[in-house]
Design a protein around this nucleic acid. Structure first.
Lengths: 177, 177
DNA sequence: AATTTATGTCAACATAGCTGACATATTCGA
DNA sequence: TCGAATATGTCAGCTATGTTGACATAAATT
């Protein structure tokens, strides 16, 4: 039924020329990023399907393992999702024994999040294929090429976010946010 | 209620050491990719919110503009989603006048997809901030650095996908898939 | 004429995001 | 010390976007 009407829309100003590089836009990198990221997350996705978890769980497990003891607020800030959204997956991860909560030593309102051994194993299992993929993609590159990749990716990140990401080796204890 | 039980799970083997670079895993790039991609799609997301569309629409509009006349089957293959999933957003885009369908000249079962001027404008508007972000991230890099970035991103893509992405300038007419 | 192909469509479901409202425990400031 | 602010949890419902399975139609192929 929608068939007959759609056949010859000659009035609709149809364009048949590809949107190309005449517009000064770097479509190549845009598409490379799309495909690269899609395949990049397909590796952990396959593992997660087995465990009954999803990408949301992946992110939580990852960051809790990267910064044991981080607060719920800090995690929310990193993930940029709502607490209701986090609550769902976090509860499952705690109930399944991948993550444990401990009341904050100073501020006992806080629930600091720690990985269990099980949680650590999962995080590592998820990171491994991604690391392999990265290593493969870096294969042909020299130190300067690798540095360029890091500089590029850093430059893609918003300043506010970048602040947190750059300080990945700092504890930043004392002012969570 | 879940409060009392969660405070002191000393039996649970809690880990307080960050999952670090002792495991031979490149967590830095993993996180850079996560943040970079998140911010990368936040630009078009903001525009799409205005139009009442979402990321799914973005992808469809993008690829139809990049390869006008592509078939539904080819688009499904690029996006790697089901036809039912595509149908929803495609219908909206057609109804709103962003994309037009034309029966295939040779095989009239095909619905070849073309952008309208409106669709082209939307695709460009969505690509522009992404291109700016990329240009900014590339700023400090020389030609070799830029080449390294492209090589890296290409290397991150699965071979099957990479085939299609590499041929982006080919018409590939005659064997859609 | 029968089958395969390209596409569309209906129905039901899952994941993961969202808003809004409200509860509880704890800390902090006046 | 009391009231406000903070950190977190939770209930209820909505949206976007993916999934599977089943079936319909038109056109091409054999």
């Amino acid at each position: 039924m929608s068939r007959a009407g759609a056949i010859k829309p000659e009035s609709d100003h149809i364009l048949d020329r590809p949107m190309g590089d005449t517009d000064g836009i770097d479509f190549e990198i845009i598409e490379l990023l799309f495909f690269a990221y899609r395949d990049f997350i397909s590796d952990p996705d396959a593992i997660l399907d087995t465990s009954g978890f999803g990408r949301a769980h992946h992110r939580v497990v990852h960051f809790v393992n990267r910064e044991p003891g981080l607060t719920v607020a800090a995690l929310l800030d990193t993930l940029k999702i709502t607490k209701q959204s986090l609550a769902r997956v976090l509860k499952q991860l705690i109930d399944s024994g991948y993550i444990a909560q401990v009341a904050g030593p100073e501020d006992r309102r806080q629930r600091r999040l720690y990985p269990t051994e099980r949680g650590r194993e999962l995080a590592l299992a998820l990171a491994r294929p991604q690391s392999c993929r990265i290593a493969h993609a870096m294969e042909g590159l020299g130190d300067d090429g690798r540095a360029a990749v890091k500089a590029f990716l850093s430059g893609m990140i918003n300043p506010a976010t970048r602040g947190a990401a750059d300080d990945q080796d700092d504890a930043m204890e004392g002012h969570e946010r």
